[in-house]
């Protein structure tokens, strides 16, 4: 059964960029959300295995989403894809339980690398 993956980013360009950069062998149904509130609604109503999460977003930012996932002990993996690449921020994201941090714009090679490492492809 194919995995459900959620791409959460407020930018259409960023969502498309990410979709296009995903490895061809990654077999998943892709759903999208354009802010943290939408993402949480999707996570609570559907079985989502993997989330690609942006940090700087209106309504609820990526940190808020990570905190909610942690608080509700939701069963999903999160890869943060963000332009906010400060070391402090990367550290915080990892402490909140993210699997990996990828700098925007996400390169196909880096994505494949991370997903391979965690057995997602």
């Amino acid at each position: 059964m194919a995995l459900n993956a959620l791409i959460c980013d407020d930018s259409l360009l960023a969502r498309n960029q990410l979709k296009k950069s995903l490895p061809a062998e990654f077999d998943a149904n892709i759903v999208t959300a354009s802010n943290g509130v939408e993402a949480l609604a999707t996570l609570r109503s559907q079985e989502i295995g993997l989330v690609f999460l942006d940090l700087t977003m209106p309504e609820l930012d990526g940190i808020g989403v990570l905190e909610a996932i942690k608080a509700d002990a939701m069963d999903c993996l999160v890869i943060v894809v963000s332009a906010d690449i400060q070391p402090e921020m990367q550290k915080r994201v990892m402490e909140l339980g993210a699997l990996a941090f990828i700098q925007k714009p996400a390169s196909a090679a880096k994505l494949a690398d991370v997903m391979h490492k965690y057995g997602l492809i």
Binding site: A83, D84, Q86, K104, P105
Partner: peptide, 9 residues
């Protein structure tokens, strides 16, 4: 957004 990320880093 990405440019701001680079700048703030």
């Amino acid at each position: 957004n990405v440019a701001m990320g680079l700048a703030s880093d």
